[in-house]
Design a binder for these strands. Structure first.
Lengths: 166, 166, 166, 166
DNA sequence: TATGAATGAGAATTCATTCAT
DNA sequence: CATGAATGAATTCTCATTCAT
């Protein structure tokens, strides 16, 4: 999966009203800039996942986190490229990504354990599925609110398919 | 939604072992090339949809077409950019896209009429959802077969969520 | 003096609704085309000069020919580049050019002999002066008629300066 | 009137032993480069015209300025294209051109008032006439000195025709 | 002989990166 | 440590000319 439009350090400099070379000093590569930009959003996601784990109901925890995460990825355009980046391409965010994947996995495992989630879906599927939902919501260009609303609708369908029924 | 890596007419010429200007004569713009490349795949999709409509069971028709379409989009990398292109950016494929969307809509309507598909999902959602499934399958780089297999697994989940249960 | 915009054989072909290669067959170089296009106008000029020599009054003959020649050069855009071309660049028109220059010279000599023209102006000056008048008339873009009218006004001034007064 | 050989920014860079993009930074268009190159010559012309206006004799002032201006245009090849450019094609030199035309006009008006210049020739004719003289001197390729000498000879004739005789 | 598609050299232009200030 | 002008490689695109039909 390619990373989409590579970040132009020159443009970043202009946008930030800062010299080009200043940007180069801080972020030797576009990837470094991307990781820096994406890190706060990532940390927020991780802390959301942490909190979700505290939820008493496994299914609710998984569902609510997915809603929150999807919203976040729609809102912060720097997150998608990081998720889509080849492993090890972004060393500084690798650990965050792994932590997030692990938390996602625990949320899913809980749901599995509770008999609430389809056991054919594994931990490794969660991030791709979330990215797919966000991508689907972006296919037709629209205002951010509309994209968020579509993402939620699509997520509702996905969760319906993910949930194990009695 | 951006169109992904823009096609380089120069590279296309080198790849095709043909003069640069030959490519420019035939495809004045990268879009023209993309459309030409994507058209056969599109036509195949349209004919698949046509055939699917003949299926006696509405849900089976929708499901089988989705499997076929997803496989095709995974296999033919020129299709995704066309689906993701802004309306009217690719004039020559606009009509094909509309036909496909319409056929998708009829398959969905049949399923709605048969009480088999969630009425909250509309015709306009089908292409995005299919693209989302393909995107999800591409998030982690993998061999084409693996990607196709993942896409099918994700599609199974999606269809589960889409289907109305008694 | 450069020859101005070089003739584009490709454009010539399109304009003539003829294949590119056909033009290349007939006119291997842009210069060959230019010469072919310019020849009829040149021949007309030469015959005008011939007729002018028959005029009884030396000054009238020179003057009237200059008016006719200036009009012709304004009207036929192919003539200026030929006049401005380096000697020997256009072999096929060289002889015509020389004949015209010689006739110009005889008209001037007659006027000199009649004491009507400034003896400091020589045969070699006539073509450049005529070209200068045409150029001056073309400096400010205008409709062909206006350019012709300006050329005549400028020529009147030039003739006034050229004429020897008693 | 076309602007003659268009300046090639690429060549300019090579000639100046400077990076291509450096030229593009400073002169986004060939016109910008032309204007920059031509401006000093233009300013010199304007100041010559200013000084000429101080001359006590109207005819002498006009004549001497024409000599100076013609010499300058022969010597500085960047001036002709600017004079020949369509109005507004070269925004940065438009004002200089207008100032020069106006000064030319005042010199001519003074000569008209003194009964020294043909009233049929107007302010708008001066620049074209000067350009025509320079063009005539350039028709036959020659060393710069010869071209300057020819231009002066032609200018003498023109001035003779322009001057009103008692 | 006429055709026009193919050619590829070269011109125009952009952009990530470096470096002198 | 910040700056932005300079760089030149890479890319896009044009055009005169050739060549297979």
């Amino acid at each position: 999966m390619d990373e989409g439009t590579p970040i132009q350090l020159n443009d970043a400099a202009r946008t930030a009203s800062v010299g080009v070379a200043t940007v180069y000093r801080h972020f030797p590569t576009p990837e470094a800039l991307l990781e820096t930009v994406a890190t706060p959003g990532f940390e927020t996601l991780v802390s959301h996942a942490d909190q979700a784990l505290a939820d008493g109901d496994a299914w609710t925890a998984l569902r609510d986190f997915l809603f929150a995460a999807t919203d976040a990825v729609i809102a912060d355009v720097s997150l998608s490229p990081v998720f889509a980046a080849p492993v090890n391409a972004l060393p500084h965010t690798t650990e965050l990504k792994q932590r997030l994947t692990a938390l996602f996995g625990r949320l899913l495992d809980q749901a599995h354990a509770a008999g609430a989630a389809d056991p054919r879906v594994t931990q490794a599927d969660m991030v791709p599925l979330m990215c797919g939902v966000v991508y689907a919501a972006n296919v037709h260009p629209a205002a951010t609110e509309d994209r968020a609303a579509n993402a939620r609708r699509y997520l509702v369908v996905l969760l319906e398919g993910l949930r194990t029924r009695a």
